[in-house]
Amino acid sequence: MKILICISNVPDTTTKIRFVDDNTKFDINGVQWIINPWDELALTRALQLKESSGGAVEKVSVITVGPKSVEPTIRKALAIGADDAIRVDAESEDAYEVANLIADAVKDEGYDIIIAGIESSDYNGSAVGGMVAEFLGLPSVSAVSSLDIENGEVVVKREIDGGSEVMTSQLPFVAIVQKGIALEPRIPSMRGIMMARKKPLNVIEPAEVPLMTEYVSYELPPAKAACKMIDPENVKELVNLLHTEAKVI
């Protein structure tokens, strides 16, 4: 059995977000790049499955769409424990394009389980995983918070309003995973870091995909307003301000 994780190269979650070129581009100066947190958890879960499978899971691969500059992030995934990696050599912020490129790159590779994080922490599009499944004609479940393999089937749990549901699916299958899929991302070991450069990182040319969307401009949310302190005795004023100023009640 082979598992593939779709990983995104995203700015560290503590990055101060700034825009350039008339607010049409994200300023990447001084940004530290990381594996998208949901994808990192997905990778951790895939490695756990491999380790506990007694050899049934032979390989965990990662794939990303991006230029050469994303390779340190790919090598981090290899250091954490992925066996090999694919980089589709293209720059894209468009989910349709990214999903198409991934689907095209892996359609003949025979992956049994493809996992994508529920969204990427930069553009929060929440679209790639579902589209990859669609393009490959595979079943998929979204918002998966636990994933196991039992008797050749995958068993997933997904959180729904007020509860959760358990589903099974035949293979191959696409899981779109959220927090809970693994408790914490795995820290790469020194040995893993040393091995990362020795593992295969296959760079492939992108397929032709028509670009259907374009980013016009970005806007930062308004700065957080100052906190107003109200005397605990004065509940009336609190209610009044929530009603007239904050307009939340």
């Binding site: 340190p72 090598r75 981090k76 250091a79 914490e184 820290i187 790469p188 070991s189 020194m190 870091i193 040393m194 990362a196 450069r197």
Partner: peptide, 18 residues
């Protein structure tokens, strides 16, 4: 090097998280 930075980050994650 990329490896040195990865080691620093791994040590930081371990230290801060655990």
């Amino acid at each position: 090097t990329e490896e040195q930075l990865m080691i620093r980050d791994a040590a930081r994650d371990f230290a801060q998280r655990e």
